[in-house]
Design a protein around this nucleic acid. Structure first.
Lengths: 328, 328
DNA sequence: CTGAAAGCGCTTACAG
DNA sequence: CTGAAAGCGCTTACAG
């Protein structure tokens, strides 16, 4: 059917070993190299990567396991990962887990069967805490989330500081009754909650927080209910872009004025946050840098498996917009 | 290093053929099956997919080639494709071409080396028109774009009708001087332009159109310039979500009131279009359905290679919002 | 520099 | 139902 290295060797009048060496830029005389290259061009030969991987025991493939590629944070991260990976001659297998530990386990098994060189993983809290990284057979770089028990490299945001920064910002604008909406499946939500609580306590204020499933729908429902209560907050923080989106929808549905009746702020500088009036105040994550750093870290780990574990902690950037304007 | 089928056979006291049959649900006695399963569990054995692919001559892999996964249209399509693919036991290799024909050629070559079962492809116009699908060695399903010369299955939007629908909508709202911003690399832009022209001509109106590179930045620059001209349009149509985003940014920068001074409408019901005041009137594409249909079409093609070519043409849905309110 | 040979880890006729 | 053997398409010591 398709032409193999044997066909090319026959056509060029050399051994398959020589063809293989030409393809792999090994030591070959100019004369034979020319003959082989002509035969390759003439036959339209393409090396079979499955055979190459099997024989060389190197898959040159990495896995990228995230909750949902439709989350703009992961969309951007994945694009950055792929760019670095392809440039390094590695392929990427993308997996969407929907924050479901069963799917996470299934994809980790698949990664083993693919004999991947390594995995970049945004794990749920449940998996991050229980994962036996050593038994996996490949290195893992955690992104976005990392449990305290995770014994592997990681690229993270300084979540506590960023959340505290958001609180300080709102306090500086005159808000006191600040509520927080946090995701309940990731360590990220927990850390941002911790930063939120710290900053509120530091100001001698109570820290009202609610934990929800990490989807816009769940956040919308929770915010709707909360804002109808007697002691509803005067400012609301959402711990990621999806939750912030849900909060905005709830607020619009209820006809609540922002920031007049309620100030809003959150994480992730998704494109809609700039365009939704009056503009959302957010912590921008360096999404490209997170993806790039994770992939580079993985490549370095593959080169030196014994190097000490590293955590890269990146700072968020506060983008001030109308949704948190001074209390009037 | 890692355990192979041979180790499992040894441990279970059977031949490798029997282990292979158990794994592949072949005919094996209950007794041997139990022994093998115990050995698999005990050894933590994972079959090597590269070996399996090489030997069985079936990669169970498909390629998904798009311009940029960060474009929300492709984000959603890719998620739908992956869901259907994984459920059918196939893996997906995602490739971002940035509308660059060289990258398209490179990735098509990679797909050949991966011996993929097939490819789902959103090609640039240049590639769609010149591609020798038959010589590729695998079936292709085109999505979003398809040249007239493309001899392959396709899942498309009814672009002409949708664009005309947008024009009719604006005409019905009292707008006459309608301009259009179209992408210059895809057949999609060309088709939407054709529908735009038809509808405008049908109404006896001139059809002012500009073609730009398919990015928000290019659209923003073009719109900025256009809106400063003497005969600037009173309504603007953008042929996809990225271009509409650019147009909105230009309009905001210039302090132009929407729809007071300029009506706006476009394609793609991206999340920001609902939230950006006064809400953008758009043609919503059935993104999940496009991805699902493309993957199913590819699976059917793999089952029956000789079936006649098919084009599935899906209708868009007009979502009316504030940006195209009646001329006051 | 070059080729013959072994072998990566599987699957699949072929016999029994 | 079961096993021995061949072979998928490569790469890589090993000799020369």
């Amino acid at each position: 059917m398709t032409t193999s290295i044997k066909d090319v060797a026959l056509l060029a009048g050399v051994s398959v070993a020589t063809v293989s060496r030409v393809l792999g830029n090994g030591p070959v005389s100019a004369a034979l190299r020319a003959k082989v290259e002509a035969a390759v061009a003439q036959s339209g030969y393409r090396p079979n990567l499955s055979a190459r991987r099997l024989r060389s025991q190197a898959s040159r493939t990495i896995g990228l396991i995230v909750s949902d590629i439709r989350n703009p944070f992961f969309t951007s991260v994945s694009r950055a990962v792929e760019d670095v990976a392809y440039r390094a001659g590695m392929r990427v297998i993308l997996c969407n887990t929907d924050e479901n530990p069963d799917k996470e386990a299934m994809y980790l098994r698949l990664m083993q069967e693919e004999r991947v060189s390594g995995v970049i993983f945004a794990a749920t809290r449940a998996t991050a805490d229980s994962l036996d990284v050593a038994g996996l057979g490949f290195p893992v770089v955690m992104i976005d989330r990392a449990g305290p028990a995770a014994r592997c490299d990681a690229v993270l945001l300084d979540n506590r500081t960023a959340a505290a920064q958001l609180v300080e910002h709102l306090l500086g604008r005159g808000y006191r009754r600040i509520g927080g909406l946090f995701g309940n499946t990731s360590s990220t939500g927990a850390e941002r909650h911790a930063g939120f609580v710290e900053a509120m306590r530091g100001a001698g204020l109570p820290a009202a927080a609610r934990f929800v499933a990490p989807s816009a729908e769940a956040a919308q429902a929770a915010a709707s209910a909360w804002l109808r209560e007697a002691d509803a907050p005067e400012a609301l923080i959402a711990s990621n872009g999806l939750l912030l989106l849900g909060a905005v929808k709830a607020v619009r549905e209820a006809g609540i004025a922002v920031p007049g009746q309620l100030a809003l702020a959150g994480f992730d500088n998704d494109s809609w946050t700039e365009l939704a009036d009056p503009g959302m105040t957010v912590i921008e994550q360096p999404v490209d840098e997170i993806g790039r750093a994770a992939m580079e870290m993985l490549l370095e780990r593959l080169e030196r498996p014994e190097r000490p574990l590293r955590k890269v902690v990146l700072a968020g950037r506060l983008v001030e917009r109308g949704s948190s304007q001074r209390r009037g």
